[in-house]
Amino acid sequence: MGFTNKPIEQASLPAVETLALAPVSPRFAPYQVLSALAQWLPLVVLLWLFIPFGMLLPWVPGVLAMLAMIGLPLLAALAWIEAKRREFGLREHDVVYRSGILVRRTTILPLVRIQHVETVSGPLERLFDLLRVRCFTAGGASADLVVRGLRQEEAEQVRQYLLGRIREQEPASAGGAND
């Protein structure tokens, strides 16, 4: 068979831009709010413990308190909205994940490129029954796609599905996929 390079009919290709994705678990929003606030907690504690407020100008503690009163609810609201806008989808040949408020990021990872899949959860995530699915491809040191906000059961199903598809794609001579 000789080398061919036929043009591709653009209209016939599946379109990423019109793809309808499913939102992640509703439990992800409260987790994300707590997670965002917890990141600032050490700084607040350090400020409280180590800054001798008597040495500061009299208006500084008030300003800091006001900043905290405005900033923390704003942070929580942004985390909530961001979590609500996360979407996830599995297609026949790839995984799609969308996130972000100001900058919307859509990542599409072809199933045939996945070399390794793992599920991870922190203590706070376990409290909300959530699990992260991390997909690795060849050549990368870190995960190429991290799907956050899936319920444990759902994440396990996704992992099993991905591993099954990887095994299907493996040539008969090669070994099985890692998990």
């Binding site: 599946p14 990423v16 072809p110 299907e168």
Partner: peptide, 22 residues
Amino acid sequence: YRIANEVLYRVEKDEAIAGATG
């Protein structure tokens, strides 16, 4: 989006053919 769709098509089609032929 055109490039993204076509790149995905090429990746997934190539591998699907390779999988089918072993």
